[in-house]
Design a protein around this nucleic acid. Structure first.
Length: 521
RNA sequence: GCCGAUGUAGCUCAGCUGGUUAGAGCGUUGGAUUCAUAACCCGAAGGUCGGCGGUUCGAGUCCGCCCAUCGGCACCA
């Protein structure tokens, strides 16, 4: 069985969960479910990033230990997974012993090969913020702290560096050979553009705080959180364990799904580190864009974050599946940000889920109930044209074609298009009903065989569409499938295609998505 | 400042290598219909394709300039 490894970023415990976290994780979940249903052996990882000066400070402010803060917020992130019906196979925390010992092992290896070395860093230091500012930024600010306005001081620090500069050519060659390594394409261009400006070595340790993994040979130094965090993708599989890990066959990841703000580390630093460790590189770093809120960037100062309580109100009003549908079909999978607008959420729900998907499932099942007592009178004929229009494809070609497109889109992480391909079957069923008017034919009993033949095809279409939408509509698709003769699909190639319904199958009336008055306040 | 992108109907967007009256979905609106969750179906209104100039027989589509918006610019997890 083919192995497929997909990851979310690990979420920084200093944040509260919001739509961004929900979005990234839902994307991965849909892909994981779809690939499992295509017969792949999927490993889906998420987790929390728990070290760093920010966590240390926040904990101090609250008078608790960093570990206590991390425990609390990590638990909150795990609770969120329950809310969204996510099916991650593991949840890694960077404070777990399995992670810490492996990070140290990786760093030891990097030291041994010379990819990590001890060096001096000199730069402009902002004492009020306890951080260095770049040369250009310092100049911009007239060598005054951009925050406190106090003069910056020239400071020197001994640090460990990762020899990123040594990987410039190998990265360029790798990028040239793997045009799909960073997606969407516009993001890849940004990365390549920056790469052309040249690479500098990056410090990978800190001495100004202690909440982190100690440098193996030099415990005065703490491994910088970023380096610590990136390794989670490997430590979760146990790659640096003495036996190479029981999960090593999942390596490398097919997709690292991330937000665009952390692209550089994933697209450049991470591959370079893996090259240094002689580990295979991931297939794709998918950097989605951001949700904005009513046309405005979400920010703490604006107080317009779509936070967990807000999301929960939507889930309560519309159901989890409707929320997931909005994430997948309206989300910022491309290079531009997507706007979360309550009115649009509502209209989308009504137009696509209620009026298209649910209504079609409802009208088809209603007619089978009315004219055939809820029993499919005959098997669907695949060779029948799907429309009276000349040159129309046969039902089987139409449904299997939509299935193939949908699965291809799922595989390629074009989740919105995967959903649309599935919905195209529903639109075809609706069109077919409108053209052939079985509800009129049924008035003359002599026409019943023809009515049955029409409705059998429609039912088969609805069933295939529901199966294809199951990775997104995890609850409602099952309801429809249950009404149309079967349960949860285990094989999307079969269940999402033609030929799964037999004569005599019981079809019960179903109404998966009901109208909702208005979006929550 | 540097690099990159985007700007097409009220909203979200399609428009490949330039070629008849610029498209889709949603929204608005008129009608038709009843199998269906006031759904589905048909029709209508609505765009000087950011602005100016250029190349061309012909430009939303190529070139230049300008305007606007957005993103990236490394230690920010």
């Amino acid at each position: 069985m083919a192995r497929a490894y997909i990851t979310t970023p690990i979420y920084y415990v200093n944040d509260r969960p919001h739509i961004g976290h929900a979005y990234t994780t839902t994307l991965c979940d849909v892909w994981a479910r779809a690939m499992r249903a295509c017969g792949e052996d999927v490993f889906f990882l998420t987790g929390t990033d728990e070290h760093g000066v920010k966590v240390e400070k926040s904990a101090q402010e609250r008078g608790i230990s960093p570990k206590a803060l991390a425990d609390e917020n990590s638990a909150e992130f795990r609770r969120v997974l329950g809310t969204f019906g996510l099916t991650n196979d593991d949840f890694i925390r960077t404070t777990e012993p399995r992670h810490e010992r492996q990070v140290q092992e990786f760093v030891r290896r990097l030291l041994a090969t010379g990819a990590v070395y001890a060096g001096e860093f000199e730069g402009w230091y902002d004492e009020s913020q306890e951080e260095y500012v770049t040369e250009t930024r310092a100049k911009e600010c007239n060598y005054l702290s951009p925050v406190s306005g106090k003069p910056l001081v020239r400071a020197k620090e001994r640090n460990y560096y990762f020899r990123l500069s040594a990987f410039q050519e190998r990265l360029e060659a790798f990028f040239a050979a793997n045009p799909g390594f960073v997606r969407p394409e516009a993001r890849f261009n940004e990365v390549k553009g920056r790469l052309r400006d040249g690479l500098q070595d990056v410090p990978i340790t800190r001495t100004n705080f202690t909440w982190g993994i100690p440098m193996p040979n030099d415990p005065e130094h703490v491994i910088y959180v970023w380096i610590d965090a990136l390794f989670n993708y490997a430590t979760a599989l146990g790659l640096a364990e003495p036996d190479g890990g029981t999960r090593r066959d999942w390596w490398p990841a097919r997709y690292h799904v991330i937000g665009k703000e952390i692209l550089w580390f994933h697209a450049v630093v991470w591959p370079a580190m893996l090259m240094a460790l002689e580990l295979p590189l991931p297939g794709c770093v998918y950097a989605h864009s951001f949700w904005i809120s009513n046309g405005q960037k979400m920010s703490k100062s604006m107080g317009n974050f779509i936070d967990l309580p807000t999301i929960e109100r939507y889930v309560a009003a519309y159901g989890l599946d409707a929320w997931r549908w909005a994430m997948i079909t309206q989300g910022p999978l491309g290079a531009t940000d997507a706007d979360f607008v309550p009115k649009q959420f509502h209209e989308l729900y009504t137009a696509q889920l209620v009026n298209t998907f649910a209504n079609c499932a409802s009208r088809t099942s209603a007619m089978i109930g009315k004219y055939f007592d809820g029993t499919l009178p005959c098997a669907p004929e695949g060779g029948r044209p799907a429309s009276i229009a000349p040159g129309s494809p046969t039902w089987q070609a139409l449904v299997d074609g939509a299935r193939d497109r949908s699965l291809e889109h799922y595989r390629a992480f074009e989740l919105d298009q995967a959903a649309d391909a599935a919905l195209s079957i529903i639109r075809a069923v609706d069109a077919s009903i409108n053209e052939t008017q079985p509800f009129k034919l049924a008035k003359d009993p002599a026409n019943l065989p023809e009515v049955g033949a029409i409705l059998a095809c429609c039912a088969q279409g609805v069933r295939a569409a529901a199966a294809l939408l199951q990775p997104i509509l995890v609850t409602k698709a099952d309801e429809v499938l249950a009404s149309y003769g079967g349960c949860t699909p285990t094989d999307l190639v079969r269940d999402g295609g033609w030929g799964t319904l037999a004569a005599g199958t019981t079809i019960t009336k179903c109404a998966p998505f009901m109208r909702v008055d208005a979006p929550p306040a």
